[in-house]
Every structure is written in C-alpha cells, then in structure tokens.
C-alpha cells in the first residue's frame, strides 16, 4: 500500500485558506502605490516584524514555505524535483566564479541543497565525482567550455540542459503522479520557451538540439525543426500538440506567453486540490506558494516602475486557489 500523508494533507488544507486568490491579487494591483501594496501584504501576514523592504518580505515568505515542509516531517526526496533548478543555478554560478568570468556577485541561492562554498571547493579541486551523478559530466563540460572558450552562453546551455534532463529523470523515477506530471510539464514548457527564443534569434538546429531536453508530450526534433522555420511554423506545430493554448498565447504577446508558461504548471497541479492522502497536495502547495511569491514580485516590480494596472494585470499568473 502506498504511503499515506493524511496529517500533512489536512494541515496543508488548513494552510490553503491563507493562499492568495485572484481577488487578493487584485487588491494588491489596485493599491494606490508601491508603498501601500507592501503595507497590504504586511496586513495579510507577509514577512515578519524584521522585514520592511519588498525583497526581505518575499525572501521571508520563501523561507516560510520550507519551514512548513520541514514541520510536516515528509521525506525531502519528494521535493527534489523542485530544488533541482536551484542546485543547477548554484553550479552555474560557481563555475562562472571559479573561472573568473563573474566575481563577487551575490547570485547564489542560500536555500539550495548544494551551497556556494561546497561547489567552489569541488570545482577548484576538479573533484566532480563528489557532485550528484547527474551533475558530474555537465559540470566538467561546462567548466572546460567556459575556461577554453569564455562563452558564458555555452556554459548556461550545458547546465540548463542538464537541469532539464535531471528534472525529467526525477519525474520518471518518482512513484508520485504529481511529480511525473510536474516534471513533464516543466520540461515541455522549457523546451517550448527555448524554441520560441531560438526562432526569434535565428539559432541553429544544432543549438536547439543541444538545449532541448527529451520529454513525452512533445517531439523535440519536430519542435526544433518547426522553430528553425520561424515563429509561424512553430505556432502551427504547437497547435497540433497538448500545448495549443501556448501557441495562442504566443500569437498575442511575449508577456502573455510567459504567463501561459507559468499558468500551465498551475493547471498541472490543480487536481491536487481534491486529493486527501497522497503527497500531491503538499507538493502542489509548495509550487502554489512559489507561484504566489513570483506573482507578487511581478506586481511590486510593476508598481515600482509605475506601470498601469492593466499592464500589471496582463502579466499576473493564475492562482492555485
């Protein structure tokens, strides 16, 4: 019998009450100023007594997510798929720092599994075998590529592709359906993003084949060939897949497409609202909270730059609840 998460799911159900719905998000958008938007967030319990600036509040909220998860005493292996992007990001940052490409920048995630000092130490000694298996070869390839060519984009491409492969693999290995579905959606959406950007910047087929990761819901070869022929051809290809709304969003505007990418992930996790015993609702809650924080960040950035309410609203993501 599969493991039951009755306590954790019930606790998450109680916490879901405090997730922002579309009306609350609208309340932040319609705040008269950036300062009042922050005050609105504080009134909703965001941040704590020590946080006053937007960045501090958002960082505190991100920390709160993992405090809740730790408190549930759920095996952290279920959340590996969510932490992979942060680990690979830190690896990328460490490679750039250790090859002197970028120095002294505060670009590391502190809450990732692989910390800055650990990664820098490994790269300095070239002890790649100390890294997780799916990072060893990409780390070496990216490091050597950056060292010899100085091409930061090539380094990003190698690590980003390895990250997508790791997410796909984590989904395939998992016995939780939500992790499988989340991994599939994440990789497919990332592939579509690569195709869209490649079509706009006239990238080669070789570049796209190197950047796109395998997934089950898209034929990556066909996607890359469609992108090679241009945006219209790409849209035509996507119209025949499960991601046709993405093609429609692509036709509207770039921000609408970015919004669709995030909404697709929320759509993937939405059925978890009706599960009572599986790990799904807990993972969905973490993704929903991260989406909420991302949305608030977009709104606050819009407010800080005096964007109109309509401009902000068209960038705002769908909420989980």
């Amino acid at each position: 019998m599969a493991e039951q998460f009755t306590y954790a799911v019930a606790r998450i159900r109680a916490l879901e009450v405090s997730l922002f719905n579309n009306a609350t998000i609208d309340g932040i958008i319609t705040s008269p100023s950036y300062e009042s938007a922050i005050q609105y967030l504080q009134e909703k319990g965001w941040g704590d007594a020590s946080t006053t600036k937007a960045d501090e509040i958002l960082k505190k909220e991100e920390e709160k997510i993992w405090e809740v998860v730790k408190d549930l005493h759920v095996d952290m292996k279920y959340f590996q798929v969510l932490s992979l992007p942060k680990d690979f990001h830190n690896l990328k940052a460490a490679i750039k720092e250790s090859t002197n490409t970028e120095k002294g920048l505060d670009i590391y995630y502190e809450d990732a599994n692989l910390k800055k000092d650990f990664l820098l130490e490994i790269l300095a000694a070239k002890d790649y075998f100390k890294l997780p298996e799916n990072m060893q070869h990409p780390a070496e390839d990216a490091y050597e590529a950056l060292l010899h060519t100085g091409d930061g984009q090539l380094c990003d491409l190698i690590i980003d592709r390895a990250c997508l492969d790791a997410i796909y693999e984590a989904g395939q290995k998992s016995d939780a359906s939500i992790i499988k579905e989340y991994a599939e959606s994440t990789v497919a959406v990332a592939d579509i993003k690569i195709a869209v950007r490649s079509a706009k910047t006239n990238k080669t087929l070789e570049f796209m084949n190197r950047a796109m990761a395998k997934c089950d819901s898209l034929n990556v070869d066909q996607l890359a060939k469609a992108a090679l022929q241009g945006s219209d051809s790409l849209k035509d290809y996507l119209m025949g897949t499960a991601y046709k709304e993405g093609a429609e969003a692509l036709g509207t505007s770039p921000s609408e497409f970015e919004r669709w990418c995030d909404n697709k992930i929320i759509e993937t996790i939405s059925p978890q609202k009706y599960r009572a015993f599986t790990i799904g609702p807990v993972i969905a809650y973490v993704i929903a909270r991260q989406n909420e924080i991302k949305t608030v960040r977009i709104i606050l950035t819009g407010k800080a730059n005096n964007l109109s309410e309509d401009s902000i609203r068209e960038r705002v993501r769908e909420m989980y609840v």
């Binding site: 009755t6 306590y7 019930a10 606790r11 998450i12 159900r13 109680a14």
Partner: peptide, 17 residues
C-alpha cells in the same frame, strides 16, 4: 486513527476548528 491524523493536521494550524 485515520480521521485523527487529519484532525490533528487541521488543529495544528487552526485550533478553533
């Protein structure tokens, strides 16, 4: 026992229930 686990989860966050 099963229902108790769920009840404990809810009361942890919201004792009023």
């Amino acid at each position: 026992g099963i229902a108790g686990q769920a009840a404990a989860g809810v009361v942890t966050e919201d004792p009023s229930k």
